[in-house]
Computed example of a mutant assay.
Amino acid sequence: MHPLFHYIIKHVSTLISKEEFRVLRSHFIQKKIRKKQYLLQEGEICKYFAFIVKGAMRQYYIDEKGFERIVNLYTENGWAGDHESFVMFTPSIYHIDAWEDCEVLLITRESLLKLCRECPAFNEFLLKLDERNNIAAQKRITSISFTAEKRYKCFVRDYPRLVNRFPQHIIASYLGITKDTLSRVRKKALKK
């Protein structure tokens, strides 16, 4: 069984029947995305959401000074895409690219909606995923007022799998601090 389906079954209370499994599988497109290749670029409409089977991706925008500002970091068993663009069919302000070589399963908005109607277990899975994403977004907004040290501590606690997958400058941008500040915070944390 494919990792996506293990992941979905793990996160829903109902078991997926053989028929639901067949329906579920039929809505996804397998694709490999090479390191530095884009899933989405600014100005495009997000036509696919990607379930990451293998690899790591980042979502970012370019600010008015030309600096990359990291919005999200994704690894295995994560979903990558611009939710607003995907739902509203508007041009994205984000870039999403592969930080490592990736294997993904893609789904279109049309297939997603159809799958939700055909497979109650998948619909339940999406509701739980939305709940988790909303909680994570609230935590991220709240963390803006935290010190750099507390932001990093929360990041390590909440996303330990990301700490060694991305370099310091990417993590620093995600946290909204400079690379030098992150370096000082990490050294201080190691001394404790």
Rank of each mutant, 00 (worst) to 15 (best):
G55L: 05
T178A: 07
I170A: 11
V156P: 00
F89L: 14
M88I: 03
R34T: 09
Q41R: 15
S183D: 06
I96S: 03
Q37Y: 08
I93Y: 09
G43V: 08
V12Y: 03
Q41D: 11
K150S: 14
E100M: 15
R165H: 04
L175W: 00
Y48H: 15
F146N: 07
W99F: 15
K150E: 15
F5Y: 07
V185I: 06
I70A: 01
G43Y: 02
V87S: 09
I29S: 13
D180C: 10
C119L: 11
G81P: 01
L175Y: 02
K31F: 05
D101A: 04
W99C: 07
V104Y: 08
I177H: 10
F146I: 00
P3Q: 01
H83T: 12
T178N: 07
N77T: 04
I170E: 04
K32R: 12
E84T: 09
C119R: 05
Y48N: 10
V87C: 07
F89H: 14
L115Q: 10
F86G: 04
E124V: 12
Q168H: 14
L126Q: 02
I70W: 03
F21G: 03
L73P: 01
F49Y: 11
I70Q: 02
L106W: 00
F67K: 15
H83D: 13
P167C: 04
L162P: 07
W79G: 00
R151N: 02
I52M: 05
E42T: 15
H169S: 06
I29G: 06
N77G: 02
I16D: 01
L24G: 09
I16M: 15
R165T: 04
F122I: 05
G43Q: 03
I141V: 13
T178L: 10
R157W: 06
E103S: 11
I135T: 12
C116W: 00
I33M: 12
V23Q: 14
V71G: 01
V23T: 11
R109L: 08
D180I: 14
L182D: 08
R132K: 15
D130I: 13
A80N: 05
T108K: 11
P91N: 04
R165K: 14
I93C: 07
T90D: 06
I70V: 15
K192E: 14
S13K: 10
V156H: 02
K139M: 07
K35P: 12
E20I: 07
I29M: 11
K36Q: 14
F67G: 07
P120R: 13
V87I: 14
L15T: 09
H11I: 01
L115V: 04
T14I: 06
Q30S: 11
K18Q: 12
E20S: 12
Y152I: 05
F5E: 12
E149V: 04
F21Q: 12
S26T: 03
I93K: 14
V12D: 05
